[in-house]
Each structure stands twice: as C-alpha cells, then as structure tokens.
Write a protein that binds this DNA or RNA. Structure first.
Lengths: 139, 139
DNA sequence: TTGGGTGCAAACTCTTTGCAGCGTT
DNA sequence: AACGCTGCAAAGAGTTTGCACCCAA
C-alpha cells in the first residue's frame, strides 16, 4: 500500500510540486524504515545525504499531501514520522523496550463517528497513544 | 476536587519534599487557569514572579506526585499542563478557535481494560487527542 | 529559461542544567 | 544548622528560516 517512488512523483506533480532527488530519497527511507522514525534516524538511513532542513521540509510537504503523518510518541522530544496508513489504528508504546506497535481496529473510527453524530464535532484527526508495558516485557 | 494549597503542602511533605512559596504559587496558578496552560501562560498568571526553570521543576514534581498531567495539544510546540483529573477523559481540540475541551466517558477505561485483558499490555497512560472543528465553529 | 527547491548557517523556541546563595525543616 | 530549592545564566535539543546557488519543468 505504500506509494512507490513513481507514485510519489506523480502525486507531487499533480499538486504542482517538483519531483526532486532529495524528496524521493526521504520518501524511500521513510517507507523502508517501517514507520515511527525521527528526523535524525531518517537522516542516517538515507543513502545519499540530504540536509536536515530539507528532510523537515520534505516531511512537512508529505504531511500536507496526506502521504505522511507525524506523532509525538514515547518520552522523546523528537517528532516521529510514518507513511500515512489507510487503516485506522493507534499506537502502543512500551515504556520498557521502547517498541512501538500499531493497534488496528474500529476504535478510532467509532470515536470519530460518535463525536460527529452526538456532539457536532467535526473530527479531522484522532491521535491515540497508549504508554505501558508490552506482553514481552511483563515477563 | 482540586487540591487546596494546604493539601498540596501536606502531599509534598508526606513524600519528603518541601512546601515552598514558588511551588504553592505554581499550583495555585495551575488550578485557577482551569487547565491546559503552557509554562509561558502560567508564568503570566503568577502574581509573584517565579523563574521559568522553577516552574518547569515544580510541574515535573507535581506530575511525579500524580497531581498534574502534561499533554502535547494543538499545533503549538509547548507542553500544556492541567491538574490531574480523577475522571477518565480525553481532549477535543478545535483547530479554528483553539478551544480545548474535556470529553468525559468510559472510553479510556474501556481501552485500558481491552488492551490489558486481550493483549497482555499493561496500560500506564492513555493519551487521546482529537483535533477538529467544534460545533460552534462549524456554524 | 525560470522560479521552486536545496544546502548551509544562523536563529528561534522550548526545556534542562550548573551553581552559588537562600529559606524550609 | 543542614541541605533542598531557587534564581540566574548558559547550554542543549529539536525545528525553522534567510539566502545564494542549483536543477526540474
């Protein structure tokens, strides 16, 4: 489901942006990272160097285009990025091992529907983060 | 339900911390602010000046004592603080007017129970933030 | 060819820390 | 009297911005 570089190029051009080498590289690294990476981690993953400022700019653009998504997870100050998923999900962050999982389900959709229908709140984004200890770390 | 200054003093001493003028002032401002304030806003609310570093230290201590809670809400980079609520709730952030509301319900408790029972995940903290447009702003 | 995008460096915001002296216990 | 806490200033992390040059369209 992740966009290929070709599809990224097309999406960029459709919206009037240029398909550049740094943008392709950032996208490729983001996809290969399997989500939840910081900008710093992304910079290390990149084969050809891309300036951090350009990484920030690329990610902000991807977010605007609906291709990527940012979260503040765990105790780190840095933002974490992942390709935008089509499926509703939320994040489980283990405070012991630092592992971050997706929990897929209808919960996020249920919340949106409930708020919209019963409270007149037009949901644009749901961010659900659960901190705790995963099964593995509980022993 | 918010702790008075007297109760704050008692809680601090019980846990081996000193009841000081700056800590009382920060607590009072936090309670009066009705939640969701940044450190900067808190500093403005304070009658007697308290150094920002001391505000940060006081809030971190309150969090450790279970008296306060931090969230990253809205598009601001700054952390927002509120007195710890006894009731389960989550935050509704209006992207138009910036208003932040609590949505009280059993949802957060339901999530905890489900994850613990069905997935072996020991929940320590649930952070649910919903961005969107409130009824008032939808017109 | 042209103007959007990039790299570089500097600036900026939020937060933390080192330290000397003050104030609670 | 002892030492935990504070204010001050400086440092630190993450992110943004200004600008000259470059390259995609």
């Amino acid at each position: 489901m992740d966009l290929t570089t070709v599809e990224l190029d097309r999406t960029l051009r459709e919206r009037g942006y240029r398909a550049t080498v740094p943008r392709r590289a950032v996208w490729q690294a983001l996809v290969e990272a399997q989500g939840h990476v910081t900008v710093e981690e992304l910079a290390e993953l990149l084969v050809d160097d891309v300036d951090q400022a350009s990484i920030y700019r690329a990610l902000a653009l991807f977010e605007e285009l609906g291709l990527a998504r940012m979260s503040r997870l765990g105790d780190s100050d840095a933002s974490r990025w992942e390709p935008a998923h089509p499926d509703e999900h939320f994040h489980l962050v283990c405070t012991d091992c630092g592992r971050i999982d997706h929990h897929v389900g209808s919960l996020v959709a249920d919340i949106s529907q409930h708020l919209d229908r019963d409270h007149g709140f037009e949901v644009q984004r749901v961010e659900l983060v659960v901190d705790g200890r995963c099964q593995r770390c509980r022993g």
